[in-house]
Design a protein around this nucleic acid. Structure first.
Lengths: 336, 336
DNA sequence: CAAATGTGTGCAATCGTTTACGCTGTACGG
DNA sequence: CCGTACAGCGTAAACGATTGCACACATTTG
C-alpha cells in the first residue's frame, strides 16, 4: 500500500541501505546516487514510516503532555505553544488529562513514558518523590512547577508584579491586598516575596488574604474575606479567582474599580471580555509551552544540565483599576 | 533496558511465540504455560512495546485529533471526553491545533494519517472534496460537522431548542430573535429550521438577526443589530457571542434580563460564572468526544456502515431570562 | 490397530527502517 | 609496482512483537 524505502531503492537502482543513508547521512552517499534516490523518492511520494524508525532508533518523535485539567483556561495556550514548536521540530504531542488528580499523574507517566521521547508535565502536583521517580522513567520538562535538578519553565513574577504595584501606587493606592492561592504553591510563595519586597521599597502597606483554592469558589470566598480589610486594591492569585471575586463584590453592591481595584494573574482570554476588563499580569503561556518542548528536544541531543527558565510576565492594565480617591470598603464589613 | 517478550518467555520456559499468544489468544495456550507466562510477566513487570506491535499489526493504538483552535472554550470538554474513552480503549490521542486555518487541515490529516488508526476531526471547515480525500487517507470521525458517507457526532437542536422556546413562551415572550452564526454553517441552518417549526406551532413571531462571525466581536455586532428589533428574547448561536452580546447591551444601559432575555448555546464553563448567569442550551461536549472516539474504534473492527449520531441537547435556564412583562427595547433603537 | 482429529507448541518470516561491518575500486605516496 | 587510505556501497543483523505453518503428541474414531 504505502511507499517504502525498498520501493525507492529499487527505482533508484541502489540498495535499501544506501537509500536510507541518502536521507540520514547524505554526505556518505555519492552525488549521482543521491540525486537518483531523491528523484525516486519524490516521484513515488515516499515518506518514512515513523513506527519502523522508532522501533530501531528508540526515538518516537512524540512528546507526552500531562495537564491536570484541560478545561482550565490556563492550559490551552500552553498547549498551542507546545504544539507549534513540536510541529516545527517534526514531533507530535500525545496529550493526556490527569483528571485533576495528583495521584493519577505518576501512573500516567508510567503509561506514557515507554512510547514517548519525553514528557512535559504541566502544573504538576506530584510529590517530590514521585517527580524523581518519574524523571527516571523518561525525560521530563516542567511547566509551572519548580523542582531542583529538573528542567522546566515558569512565570517570573518580575517585572509584572513590580509594574502592577508601581502602577497602583501612582494611582494613589497605599494599602494593597494579596489574595493567595494554595499555601503550598511555590509560585504563590514567590509572588508573596516579590510583593513584600516591592511594597517595602515603595513604602506601601500590604495584607495577605487567604489562602484559598485557586478556583471560582475560592475567588468568591476571597471576596468575603476582602470585605474585612481596608485594602483599596488587590492582586489575586489568578484570573479565574479574580473574575469570581469581582462578580461577588458586585453582588454586594461594591463598585469595581470605584471602591476597589483588582488585578489578576494569567491573562486568560475572558479577562479581556468582561466589563470592566480585568487588569492582570500576563503570563507568557504560549512561550512557556514552546520553551518547555524546546528543552525536552534539546536535552534529547546535548545534555546541557537541567536549567529552569523563568519567563518574564507583563502587567496589563484594564478597566478593573482606577485612582484610589474615594476607594475603600469602610462600613461594608460584616455585610457578607 | 526494558523488559521484552523474550525475557518473559525465557523466564517461563516457553518460546516467544507462546508468550505472545498468552496475551493475544490465551485460549490457544495450555493452562499451565499460561499461568507460568502470566506469573513471569507480572514478576518482571512486562509491558508490551507498542511500537513493535504497531509495526507488525499496522495498528498504532493512537487516534489523531484535529481541532481548529484549542483556545476555543468549546473544545476542551470534547477532548476530555475523547481522551477518557480512548484511555478506556487502551488508546492514546495525538492532538493537533489547525491554527484556525481551514487550509491547514488537509495537510495535517496527511501528516497524521500514517501514524494513527483514525482521525477525529472537530468542527472541520474543510471543503467537501478535501473531506473526501481525507477519508481515503485514514478512518475519519466528525465532530460538529455533518457530511454524507462519513461517521460522526453532532448536537441535535432537539430537545434543547424546543424546551427553551417553550420556556420563554411560558414567561410571556411572544417575539423571539435568533442571532445566527456563519450562514454557511449547517448547524445554524438546522437550528433555524427547528426554531421556525417550533415558533410556527406555538404561534410565536421570530426574527432572524445575522449572520455574524461566531466570535466575541460577532456577539458585540449582534447587540447593535438586536437594538433595531422588537424581540423580547433572543437565542444566540453560541455562548461566546451571547456573553459578548450581554456585555455590549449592558454598556448601552440595557438590562438583561429585565429588558431582554438571552439564551446561549454550548454551556461553556463561563456561562455559569457570569452575573446574571447565561441561560443556554447545553451541548453534550464530553459525550460527543467520547462517542466520536468510540465510532473510530468500532469502525476499526466491524464495518457497520457510516452513521451520524445526533446527541440530545438540554435547555439550562439561568439568570439571563425573565418574564416578558415590561421587556423590550422600544425607544432604544438608534442608540448604537 | 491404523487413521483421523485436535491441542499445544516452536520455527521462522514478517513489518520498515537503521547501522555495524566488510567489500570493492580508485587515488596516491613511496 | 605495491601498500595504504578512503569513498561509496551492499549484506545482514538488529529493534520487539505477531502469526502462518508444521510438528509432536494425545485423543477419538472406523
Amino acid at each position: 500500500m504505502a511507499v517504502t524505502l525498498k520501493d525507492v531503492a529499487q527505482q533508484a537502482g541502489v540498495s535499501i541501505a544506501t537509500a536510507s543513508r541518502a536521507f540520514q547521512h547524505p554526505e556518505m552517499v555519492g552525488s549521482d546516487s543521491l540525486a537518483r534516490i531523491r528523484a525516486a523518492a519524490a516521484e513515488l511520494g515516499y515518506s518514512p514510516n515513523r513506527t519502523a524508525r522508532a522501533l530501531i532508533t528508540g526515538r518516537a518523535g512524540v512528546y507526552g503532555v500531562i495537564v491536570p485539567d484541560l478545561e482550565n483556561p490556563f492550559f490551552p495556550a500552553v498547549l498551542k505553544g507546545a504544539q507549534a514548536r513540536a510541529h516545527q521540530l517534526g514531533a507530535q504531542l500525545l496529550i493526556t488529562d490527569a483528571g485533576e488528580s495528583p495521584d493519577g499523574e505518576l501512573p500516567l507517566v508510567r503509561t506514557l513514558a515507554p512510547q514517548v521521547d519525553g514528557i512535559m508535565l504541566c502544573s504538576s502536583r506530584m510529590e517530590e518523590d514521585s517527580l524523581r521517580e518519574a524523571a527516571t522513567l523518561t525525560r521530563l520538562s516542567l511547566v509551572n512547577r519548580v523542582s531542583p535538578e529538573l528542567p522546566g519553565v515558569h512565570a517570573d513574577p518580575e517585572p509584572g508584579i513590580p509594574a502592577a504595584v508601581q502602577h497602583l501606587r501612582r494611582l494613589g493606592h497605599r494599602r494593597l491586598g494579596y489574595v493567595g492561592g494554595p499555601a503550598v504553591s511555590r509560585s504563590d510563595q514567590a509572588r508573596r516575596s516579590v510583593i513584600s519586597r516591592i511594597c517595602a521599597a515603595a513604602e506601601l502597606d500590604w495584607v495577605e488574604i487567604g489562602p484559598f483554592p485557586p478556583t471560582a469558589d475560592g475567588g468568591r470566598a476571597a471576596a468575603e474575606a476582602l470585605l474585612q480589610t481596608d485594602a483599596t486594591a488587590v492582586l489575586v492569585y489568578n484570573d479565574l479567582m479574580a473574575l469570581a471575586l469581582m462578580e461577588r463584590l458586585r453582588s454586594y453592591g461594591v463598585d469595581v474599580p470605584g471602591q476597589i481595584s483588582v488585578v489578576g494573574w494569567d491573562d486568560i482570554p475572558f479577562a479581556a471580555m468582561v466589563t470592566p476588563g480585568l487588569a492582570t499580569i500576563r503570563v507568557p503561556r504560549y512561550d512557556m509551552g514552546a520553551r518547555a518542548i524546546e528543552m525536552l528536544h534539546q536535552g534529547a541531543h546535548e545534555e546541557g544540565g537541567p536549567v529552569h527558565l523563568g519567563l518574564a510576565t507583563q502587567f496589563v492594565p484594564r478597566g478593573s483599576i482606577a485612582r484610589a480617591e474615594g476607594a475603600g470598603l469602610s462600613g461594608l464589613s460584616g455585610l457578607g
